[in-house]
Design a protein around this nucleic acid. Structure first.
Lengths: 335, 335
DNA sequence: GTGAAAGCGCTAACAA
DNA sequence: TTGTTAGCGCTTTCAC
């Protein structure tokens, strides 16, 4: 068996309380006793059993994170922020992947709870009120991170999508583009950020007195972007489209792939920009003009807020918005 | 406070032992008592405290994973496999990122231990014997995953790099390429898989009676690949190089980026292949011919082996090699 | 089939 | 400054 506090106490010839005091620095211990305890700890290679400690202190120092899919680049970036900041404050991360299944999310939430996590971060790509309600009832700090939807009154960290979309559209307009296509993803659900982004696009187009043109694709994948290719090809001729604002980098990449395959040159023949600034956007050629969503920071701020709440701070504003950035790269040119 | 086994016992008017028996199905309980207990559990929304349970059973159902950086695509893929298979067997994942720092790895290893993890998976990119030794001493199932180094006699899951490299080189030769450049990364450390890969390349070149040409770059990054560009440009002229086998996809992508910027067409002017089959390799244009390292499976098999060991199976072979695949895409052409 | 009691490894009164 | 003791929430003998 592994060595316990008793073994240390015996070897150091003190009581277990004294050992406990030494390892927790919780009360004054005579230099002599401390020395003996430390020596014993060293000799035995004693490491306190955190499980036992948790049981009595009711502090697990665990924060549960439920993600859709850790294989998604942006999720991994958020995890980095979560992990790194959590670590600074001595919190460990219990990870579970739901693959977008609400049933699984629910199961994991309860599992995390039974493991006594002190807070939960849910990274979701859909909205399921049932899961949210259950987690809320746990009465522990909770952060809801969703790149695609807003849920009002839920503590979260995100960006101002309206502003970002407006900024990007304006940039394209200022480059001289007059006919700018916005590619969104079919979505009627309440809270979809696409609504805000479309508003931002519209606002800018109106300001420049240009006609809007919005098309939907089926989802946020490279394939969906690729599939928009032939429609775009027609639009270039028929509507003299010179720039496309894609609602996600993946779609932009798919579209540029189509162009590559069809000998349409980007940005010479058409300017294409994305949204998100995933890793790929900077590595791909042409490198992609996009909006940088600060994934790392979103994760970092989310866990920081949880820890603050754990430390007693009440969080005032449920939603925090982080600054975005327009990243100008090769895929969009002045016209 | 949250509801405990006592509350359930009181409401059901049985002893806590009976409640325990019901939730664990550990001994026969009269139908009537079971019914009452179940009703009480349901009414109170009772969830057993896993921490308390762990303390007595000495089973935490936790597996600790130390990764270099969850932001790396291949690490995230491995994590998927680890998480998903762990979940099937009811194990939770405690995640920590070392960012390659051995001191941090060590600290996390001990932290994980004190959290009573039942097994540890270390995903590393360097070799630090000290860390390995410490983890070994924990005497719990341990898997060592390292894409770049082999450490003999350590339980691990990897691929046969010699074979993979041989296969790829042979493929290029069979496409008609005669002068094939292999780009490796400067590395004298023992156990580097680059040694095996170079051997595989050599073997194939010898078999086809061609001269080898090997160059080193500084690390496994896109930038390092890009930096090889001008050297390659000269080599195309001077040595009539028609194909480049890069030891990692990132380097291949960097090199192709250079070509893109310098109006060298891939694969028309030069064929370039990579190694790893990261996500990027299939999305990038031209799509990249590469060796598929089965990251997901590596993670899945690693944790499965840990669980098997936890279940009492002794693991015979320390190292397991998973099958690789040659993925033929656009970046290499017949000559 | 069931309850009482011991104990997992630890912290935190409390008393000395 | 120190030791004794009670418990954290649970499982598991051991009697009955």
């Amino acid at each position: 068996m592994s060595v316990t506090i008793k073994d240390v106490a015996k070897l150091a010839e003190v009581s277990i309380s004294t050992v406990s005091r030494v390892i927790n620095n919780s009360a004054s211990v005579s230099p002599e006793a401390r020395r003996r305890v430390l020596a014993a700890i060293d000799k035995l290679g004693y490491k306190p059993n955190q499980v036992a400690r948790s049981l009595v202190t009711k502090k697990s120092n665990l924060i549960g994170v439920i993600v859709t899919d850790i294989g998604n680049s942006y999720v991994a970036q958020m995890m980095r922020g979560i992990e790194e900041v959590g670590r600074m404050y001595n919190y460990d991360i219990l990870l579970s992947s739901s693959y977008g299944n609400p049933k699984t999310e629910l199961k994991f939430a309860e599992l995390l709870r039974s493991k006594q996590v002190e807070g939960i971060i849910l990274i979701s790509e859909d909205v399921d009120e049932a899961v949210i309600d259950v987690i809320k009832e746990f009465n522990i700090p909770f952060m809801y991170l969703n790149k695609y939807y807003k849920v009002s009154n839920l503590p979260s960290v995100s960006i101002d999508n309206y502003e970002a979309s407006f900024m990007m559209t304006k940039y394209l307009l200022e480059l001289g583009h007059e006919n700018i296509l916005y590619i969104t993803v079919n979505n009627d659900k309440v809270g979809s950020v696409e609504k805000d982004k479309i508003e931002g696009y519209r606002k800018a187009m109106e300001e420049f007195k240009k006609d809007e043109l919005i098309l939907s694709t089926k989802d946020f994948t490279v394939e969906a972007g690729y599939d928009m290719g032939n429609i775009l090809e027609n639009l270039i001729d028929e509507r003299n489209i010179t720039a496309v604002f894609c609602c996600q980098d993946e779609i932009a990449i798919g579209l540029i792939n189509y162009c590559y395959d069809s000998n349409i040159q980007v940005p010479k023949d058409i300017s294409i920009c994305g949204y998100g600034d995933t890793k790929m956007a900077s590595i791909y050629r042409p490198s992609i003009t996009t909006i940088k969503e600060p994934y790392y920071d979103i994760g970092a701020v989310a866990i920081r807020r949880i820890i603050k709440e754990l430390e007693g701070d009440k969080i005032e504003e449920p939603s925090i918005y982080l600054p975005i950035q327009l990243i100008k790269r090769e895929s969009c040119r002045r016209i």
